[in-house]
């Protein structure tokens, strides 16, 4: 067994540098690597390119890095919940690349899977297709999208073992598995870290080969963006 466990958050983010490209798992605030984001926001690292489906909210998630102006470029699909993000984008301080959500997921997957590019119908005929090769397959136009990779990928899982194997909970899985594959150094934080051998090998979502560092996360807030309930009748 190759032991991936690191004991401190400092060891987990060791080697991060200015101008690097980072991936962050999560959909909205669901399944985001809270510990890593907090540690990065307290570090001096800056001019980052961040790849994440969303950009957090003003005071949580990637909003923490935006507030401190540590991000020079965001690559996302939907950024509607963050006023500071919108301000920085409209003022030109922040460069933003908005791409279709399915293309974002597949570009990360491709990056981790050794596929340099692929054709997809998503975005054909829109501004997303500008400057991209178009080719017809089965009579339908498709556009060429390239793979994405990152210097560091920060992911969050529910359970993990010291070999780096990960299991996600509910819809907190989202982009985490693909980003784990696409990171040169993938740092996984988990709510429950167990010794290798305790997880059922048949029920692991992300094989440990994709994870370089794993640590026991702490103090998870797990904020809910849209608390919706129904009445008991």
């Amino acid at each position: 067994m190759i032991n991936k466990e690191v004991k401190s958050i400092e060891d987990a983010i060791k080697g991060v540098e200015n101008n690097m490209t980072f991936m962050f798992g999560g959909f909205g605030l669901c399944g985001i690597p809270e510990n890593a984001i907090k540690a990065l926001s307290e570090s001096s690292v800056t001019s980052l390119i961040c790849i994440s489906n969303n950009a957090g909210i003003d005071d949580f998630g990637l909003g923490l890095l935006l507030q401190k102006k540590q991000v020079k470029k965001m690559i996302s699909s939907y950024v509607g919940e963050n006023a500071e993000f919108e301000r920085q984008m409209l003022s030109g301080e922040l460069e933003v690349d908005l791409i279709p959500q399915g293309s974002l997921a597949e570009r990360c997957r491709a990056g981790g899977a050794g596929i340099p590019a692929f054709f997809t119908p998503a975005g054909y005929g829109t501004e997303v297709a500008e400057g991209k090769e178009v080719r017809e397959f089965n009579g339908q136009p498709h556009i060429l999208e390239s793979a994405l990779e990152a210097d560091f990928a920060f992911v969050k899982a529910w359970k993990g073992d010291t070999a780096g194997n990960l299991i996600y909970k509910g819809t907190a899985r989202n982009f985490n598995p693909m980003m784990a594959m696409a990171g040169k150094i993938t740092v996984a934080e988990v709510e429950h870290l167990v010794p290798a051998g305790e997880l059922d090998p048949a029920n692991i979502h992300t094989p440990g080969i994709f994870v370089q560092r794993i640590f026991q996360g702490r103090d998870y807030e797990k904020r809910i963006e849209q608390r919706t309930v129904r009445n008991k009748k």
């Binding site: 996302s76 699909s77 939907y78 509607g80 409209l90 279709p100 997303v128």
Partner: peptide
């Protein structure tokens, strides 16, 4: 110039 929220999954959905 006004609203920049992003397309989310809409482009993938309508394309297919």
């Amino acid at each position: 110039g006004k609203m920049v929220k992003g397309m989310g999954g809409a482009m993938d959905l309508v394309a297919s």
